[in-house]
Simulated scan of single mutants.
Amino acid sequence: MPDPQRTLAQTNWAELHHAYGSATDAPHMLVALLDADQVVRSKALGKIHGVLHHQNTIYEATVPTALYVAAILPDPRTMRAVDKDRHSLPGNIRTELLAWIASVANEVTDAADATSRRYGFPLEDYPPAVSMREIRPLLYSAALAYVHDTDRHVREAAITACVPLMDDPKLLSHRATLAPLVRRVLGTSELWQHRERAIDALDAWSEDSSGLEGQRNPFLYCDSDLSPASCRWGADPGAGWSEEPPF
Rank of each mutant, 00 (worst) to 15 (best):
residue 131 S to A: 15
residue 183 R to G: 01
residue 95 T to D: 05
residue 133 R to H: 12
residue 104 V to K: 01
residue 196 E to H: 11
residue 183 R to Y: 14
residue 116 S to T: 08
residue 128 P to I: 03
residue 183 R to A: 01
residue 125 D to F: 15
residue 142 A to M: 09
residue 136 R to A: 09
residue 181 L to Y: 14
residue 129 A to I: 07
residue 108 V to S: 02
residue 118 R to K: 10
residue 156 E to N: 06
residue 178 L to K: 03
residue 122 P to E: 06
residue 191 L to N: 13
residue 95 T to N: 07
residue 143 A to L: 09
residue 154 V to I: 05
residue 98 L to C: 01
residue 102 A to P: 00
residue 146 Y to F: 11
residue 163 V to T: 08
residue 134 E to F: 10
residue 195 R to P: 00
residue 192 W to D: 05
residue 114 A to Q: 02
residue 153 H to C: 01
residue 118 R to M: 09
residue 107 E to C: 07
residue 168 D to V: 07
residue 151 D to V: 06
residue 177 T to I: 14
residue 126 Y to L: 06
residue 136 R to T: 07
residue 108 V to G: 00
residue 151 D to Q: 08
residue 146 Y to G: 00
residue 110 D to A: 09
residue 103 S to W: 07
residue 168 D to R: 11
residue 129 A to L: 07
residue 105 A to K: 08
residue 170 K to Q: 15
residue 135 I to M: 03
residue 130 V to M: 06
residue 148 H to C: 04
residue 142 A to E: 11
residue 133 R to A: 04
residue 165 L to K: 05
residue 128 P to Y: 06
residue 134 E to T: 11
residue 179 A to P: 01
residue 177 T to E: 15
residue 108 V to F: 12
residue 105 A to C: 14
residue 152 R to C: 01
residue 152 R to S: 04
residue 165 L to R: 02
residue 139 L to V: 00
residue 101 I to R: 05
residue 187 G to R: 07
residue 180 P to F: 10
residue 103 S to A: 09
residue 95 T to P: 03
residue 145 A to C: 13
residue 190 E to N: 13
residue 108 V to W: 13
residue 155 R to N: 01
residue 158 A to W: 02
residue 172 L to C: 14
residue 186 L to I: 03
residue 102 A to D: 03
residue 154 V to H: 03
residue 116 S to C: 11
residue 114 A to P: 00
residue 132 M to K: 06
residue 192 W to R: 14
residue 152 R to T: 02
residue 154 V to D: 00
residue 102 A to K: 05
residue 164 P to C: 06
residue 173 S to K: 15
residue 139 L to E: 03
residue 122 P to N: 06
residue 182 V to E: 02
residue 134 E to Y: 14
residue 133 R to S: 08
residue 171 L to M: 12
residue 112 A to Q: 03
residue 142 A to S: 14
residue 188 T to P: 08
residue 155 R to K: 10
residue 149 D to K: 10
residue 116 S to F: 12
residue 129 A to C: 09
residue 184 R to V: 02
residue 115 T to F: 07
residue 122 P to K: 10
residue 126 Y to E: 05
residue 146 Y to Q: 00
residue 148 H to F: 13
residue 104 V to A: 06
residue 136 R to E: 12
residue 168 D to I: 08
residue 108 V to T: 04
residue 99 A to H: 11
residue 158 A to T: 04
residue 163 V to W: 04
residue 160 T to W: 13
residue 170 K to G: 01
residue 164 P to Y: 09
residue 170 K to W: 09
residue 151 D to E: 12
residue 159 I to V: 02
residue 123 L to M: 12
residue 186 L to M: 06
residue 167 D to R: 13
residue 134 E to D: 10
residue 125 D to N: 14
residue 99 A to Y: 10
residue 148 H to G: 01
residue 108 V to I: 07
residue 98 L to W: 03
residue 145 A to L: 14
